[in-house]
Amino acid sequence: MSTAQFWSQAPAPRCTAGDWIMARRAPSAGAPWGLPSRGLAATPGSPALWIKEKEWRPILVTALPCVVEWDGVRVAVIADDHLQFPEIGRYLAGGGAKLFVVADERPRTDYRSGLWREVQQNQVLGLSWYPCPSLLVPCEMDPHGTGILPAAASAGPLRVGWTWQDLADVRSRHPIWPRMRPDLYQRHWWGRT
């Protein structure tokens, strides 16, 4: 089980535009692209992504998008502006990124979010924290079909958990990637832009 843990000022789990993605880098990992040494990582024994205010300011938006290794998978760290261009999400997911984290936006926790669209059409996961911290997942991974798994606090900070196998199962049962038509995209659009 992997988890994301959300930090916020008690009691209301609300964040502001000044919030930053914060992450630690695993001691054994190499320096990730575009990130300082205290980048994105797993906490030994308890993998966690941390989203925290002010304490960490590690990512320059101009260095985005970047891909880092965390919990044995690739994580795409992108800027809000990138969500206007599905080509970028497709590129990152096609390169193996399975979790999308947006560094400089307040990605909405509903289907109107560009991040939600990227999650659905690329069958990846996304972290969203406005107005309520949640994990965005393909709708088939959510028993309610919304594609949104809200973080919950049993004791301490808000957390949400998942297994990568769940994502693999969705990709296997509802395969989107194998039915892409790059031949058509090249002929009618991409090769002509």
């Binding site: 599905p86 497709r90 059409q121 989107i176 892409m180 038509r181 058509l184 995209y185 009618h188 659009w189 991409w190 002509r192 832009t193």
Partner: peptide, 12 residues
């Protein structure tokens, strides 16, 4: 389901 479809027809 594929954004590429809409990109193609818009391009046309």
């Amino acid at each position: 389901t594929y954004y590429e479809t809409f990109r193609m027809v818009r391009h046309l």
